[in-house]
Nucleic acid binder design. Sequence first.
DNA 1: GATGAATGAGGCTTCATTCAT
DNA 2: GATGAATGAAGCCTCATTCAT
Lengths: 232, 232, 232, 232
Amino acid sequence: MTVHSAGKPDDGPKAADKADRNDKRERILSAAERIFAKHGFFAARVSEIAKEAGVADGTIYLYFKSKDDLLISLFESRMSQVNAALEAAIHAETNASPARQLHAFIRTYLKLVYDEPAAAEVLTIELRQSSKFMKEYDNPQFVAFLRMLGAIITAGQERGDIDPSIPSHVAARMIFGMLDELSLAWVLSRQTSISTGTPGTRPKKFDIVRAADWVVALVTNGLDRSLKEKSP
Amino acid sequence: MTVHSAGKPDDGPKAADKADRNDKRERILSAAERIFAKHGFFAARVSEIAKEAGVADGTIYLYFKSKDDLLISLFESRMSQVNAALEAAIHAETNASPARQLHAFIRTYLKLVYDEPAAAEVLTIELRQSSKFMKEYDNPQFVAFLRMLGAIITAGQERGDIDPSIPSHVAARMIFGMLDELSLAWVLSRQTSISTGTPGTRPKKFDIVRAADWVVALVTNGLDRSLKEKSP
Amino acid sequence: MTVHSAGKPDDGPKAADKADRNDKRERILSAAERIFAKHGFFAARVSEIAKEAGVADGTIYLYFKSKDDLLISLFESRMSQVNAALEAAIHAETNASPARQLHAFIRTYLKLVYDEPAAAEVLTIELRQSSKFMKEYDNPQFVAFLRMLGAIITAGQERGDIDPSIPSHVAARMIFGMLDELSLAWVLSRQTSISTGTPGTRPKKFDIVRAADWVVALVTNGLDRSLKEKSP
Amino acid sequence: MTVHSAGKPDDGPKAADKADRNDKRERILSAAERIFAKHGFFAARVSEIAKEAGVADGTIYLYFKSKDDLLISLFESRMSQVNAALEAAIHAETNASPARQLHAFIRTYLKLVYDEPAAAEVLTIELRQSSKFMKEYDNPQFVAFLRMLGAIITAGQERGDIDPSIPSHVAARMIFGMLDELSLAWVLSRQTSISTGTPGTRPKKFDIVRAADWVVALVTNGLDRSLKEKSP
DNA sequence: GATGAATGAGGCTTCATTCAT
DNA sequence: GATGAATGAAGCCTCATTCAT
């Protein structure tokens, strides 16, 4: 999840302009990410985002249609980065079993949360609101995300590796629910606020990366140990 | 989930006044529930809530300090009803194993979602925002919810029935994540708006009550079928 | 200025009712006096006055037409008490010169301010507003006050004791201006708030009763000492 | 009393912007002055001030923090103009006796009232309320005003020209009281509303400018003519 | 007469968005 | 393209007043 794609080379005057434009757009997105993470979407002020991005208020409207559009664009941007990272992780295990791909998916997702807490905070907290207050927003990247996860499960079910009694899209939802809830708990328990250095008073923090093992364990074997005999 | 007014008998004029007062308070809460479910907290208008409740705008402020307080009170009210129902379900299985209690917990929760979709919508969608924009709000009922779930798991771990390698509070979060995500998916997929009280048209995309079995299955045995042998 | 006329004897059931009624009316007035003094008319809440008076909000409207009427009635009540006290002071000096009557007037006025700071605060601070926001209010008691003062001056002018070059009603205004401004300065500099015991941070206080001598000195001889020879 | 913008020369585009800004600020202040004079502070509506100033409601909040701040800023602005005019008048008589400076002070003050009735009305009527309902407001310009007046008196007392038995700050208060009360009487007696800019109809009850002589007379020699012998 | 819960009109203020420069 | 001052619609909330009990 390498946000802030500043590494792209300029190769010509037009390209430079375009790079400038992309640069400014990305600066605004990244500022919005921090401000939304700090205050939440509704409490965030467009003028504060502009200030954080180092542009004038009006400039934002040269790049985004509205405040809503800014949030949607931020979703699209960050979710597509998430999806790209997840796809890469899966492709790295192309020949592995769906179960192993699923494990890679889970670990990669939580690692992304760890690396980009501001993005995670926005995705985790604002995603739901958005689906509510923006009826017309289809959230294609989130759909793609679920589809990717569902596809792994379907593949496993077809191979007989994964319990076929649960519809794959429901299983995908459940797994996403676990990941999302852990992300939320972790993000809100972070002791230092993301955007400012000021310490807050938040409960104990846990290791979100290590938590991947717990998710894998639950998803793989469940919690029941009463009568079962496991393979070593 | 009709716990309104907790069965206290009226025994005199004062009691009648109190009942009146509770009645109106509950009418406002229930109106807020529908309006928040319809528009979301931020887009909801206090005056629309008042109209829905059949009271004047100002009356709301006789019962709640502010719009924020109305949301918080709604959380408290509905979550405590949820907790009461869950506690009842667990107590009904006092002598059962923690695993069975866990199943009862899951089934009861999703049944409540089915019975009270508006409450579910508010709890599911607004809960996260609220923890963000209301820093000072402790959300004690949600903490109690998690504690109840964690206690079941801890008990199972102590008896050896439940995998002890996952911290119980993390396991509780994961299970809640599944339930919450399924609720969200179900609530948002309903085609007729909840806010109109007219029942009868529920073309939901999946059966949230049946989904309880899937959650139980996943939580109990996980998804992995590659090497395992199950009891029939 | 014996406010709270509680000393009137009851002499029959009807009289008792009437006394009751007057009592409650006066309790409300006196509560209003304290609350207006504490917060000012606009910031004062009718419900706080009711609470201070120990009656229900609605009861106030059995005795006064409106909040405005309450203020006007308070003016009338207190100013007529002031006027009565001033008239008494003048009558005590019926045979004295107008100049001496004027001195008595001044001393009595400032003594009343000292004795009834809450009344003084309301009269001093709210009187002006009232003449502004209540166009229809004639303020007859204040007119009577000025007339009384003007009459003394006119009498003195007719006897040749008082400089006839200044219209008496203008002289009356000037003298009232001095008294009013000193009252204001004194009332606002009081270190303990009138209605609550909580100490405030106010500048030095001076002796309002002693200040009467200064007013008398200025009104009598003016400030100029450059060329004049005074009688001892 | 046209001190708007203090004579600073424009010398460039930035300066023009600043002038624009000051212009609009002053336009709002002057609109507020008229509206406050017409209705009083509390009854005045921010939207009416905006309309009178020819700006949008929100624009007012670009220049002033709140309606309260608008009133305070108006005080500061007008009182500092008053103080500047008074200082100029005193400086014009630098070599004169304090007594003559005092006369200049009085005449200048009442001339200002005559020239700027709306400002006078606001200062006269709202000043007291403001010191009450805005506890935190120090009113530095009014303090400066009193200090200036007190300094003249102190100087006269030190030279032996002015009666030393009255504390100078008390004498200053008394003189201000006279001026203020005369202003009030004059301002309220004007039959045509100040707010309509139409001049020409001023059937005032007395001549406020001539009244300066009466104030001077009273302050200089007092009213007592009983035993005294005056210089012709 | 007394109560106090309920009313509802209306104001101050915010802030996303625009547009002249 | 960039700016940021100006806009003005719209909401939360207050509180004087009423009226059923």
